[in-house]
Design a protein around this nucleic acid. Structure first.
Lengths: 196, 196
DNA sequence: AAATAGCACGACCGATCGTGCTATTTCGAG
DNA sequence: CTCGAAATAGCACGATCGGTCGTGCTATTT
């Protein structure tokens, strides 16, 4: 899912550095030296830091979507559990080395009115909406032993996922993913009762 | 829980600005003008930004501890639920206007080795430990309808609490606290079964 | 071969950062 | 009323910030 070309290389590096330090702390200078370019040469690709941030968010979403959300063709039967497992794996593999780009940055930019804040809030919304849709589908497909309220359950699942990521960043101990998986079972019941 | 004296006033402002923008982005200049002081006059109180950050973290913990953790003398019977409710209220009242100081900053500083990162990680540990202890006590007191694994449950509760805070920051919609309360019931069962 | 267009470059701008060093002010004890 | 210590302000520093400028290389087009 690496992007090609100079601009793509810049965005890949921006993704890495931005997730580690936050979108605002990511400076043009440090990014330029990370891709072995001059600051001005890099800058010309975007025109403003604002635009660079927006492009980075868009790239981050593409990576996340491809790795987590986009349909794995198999297993409509366990769609929700597959989604959650891919999500946890995404965090555990540190695809964004500094952790979940969206929630951290969205909180960092919360309260501002600019386009960057809006883009981040929208990314968070897309994440929770994806969870909500998966819960709905799981309700319909019989994947869940009992029906669950989609909004409410999406909130609980999103909490579990993002907190696993955050604590993994802080503690560097993958045991948080075991806790997350146990919490998911607590919240949803064991998978596959409907078609065992 | 306001701290007194000039230094206390500085720390109160540091708490507010730091929670809004993050500990690193909090600059001496903006902080100085927020308390109507010169940058150097403020600086003399701490000697380095490092020390200011550490003092701010300590102050933040004192505020949090007094508002949430320290024993409310009543209701040993519902200790865990009271703790969770105070915790949510702490977030909803925006005592730290930019949201939970500790998790956000701890993730921001994750990976570094300095004392600030260590202090933040320790604050997060104290939070999860407080939850764990409350779960243990609830197990013993019969507050919970069924016994719960303390570590595992502390993780799930901490997820719920911090995610409510984060989404509240992003969405400005207090409905997230309803979701959080429902999730708590999901995780723990209804309160007060043991002594109803 | 000449003209053009896309990239990337180094130099530089004003602003702000954290941090020293030195005055000045403030204030309580004698 | 004075004196000395503590608190605060003034000022300057080197570094870095986002951003602009003119310039040179290297293709492609004409």
């Amino acid at each position: 899912m690496k992007a090609e070309g100079t601009r793509g290389a810049i965005l890949d590096a921006a993704l890495e550095l931005g997730s580690l330090q936050g979108l605002e702390e990511l400076s043009l200078g440090s990014l330029a030296s990370a891709v072995n370019m001059s600051k001005s040469g890099l800058f010309a690709h975007f025109g403003s830091k604002h635009e660079l941030q927006l492009a980075t968010i868009a790239q981050a979403w593409e990576v996340f979507e491809a790795e987590v959300v986009l349909d794995p063709p198999q297993s409509a039967q366990h769609g929700l559990h597959v989604l959650l497992e891919r999500w946890l794996s995404f965090y555990q593999r540190k695809v964004f080395p500094g952790g979940c780009f969206f929630v951290i940055s969205a909180v960092e930019f919360a309260g501002r009115a600019d386009a960057v804040a809006k883009a981040l809030a929208s990314a968070v919304d897309r994440q929770t909406t994806a969870l909500e849709a998966a819960v709905r589908k799981a309700n319909a497909s019989g994947e869940l032993p009992i029906r669950k309220d989609p909004r409410q359950t999406a909130f609980a699942l999103f909490s579990t996922l993002t907190n696993a990521d955050a604590l993994f960043q802080v503690r560097e101990d993958p045991v948080v993913f075991d806790h997350a998986r146990a919490t998911i079972v607590d919240l949803l019941g064991p998978p596959g009762l409907a078609d065992g």
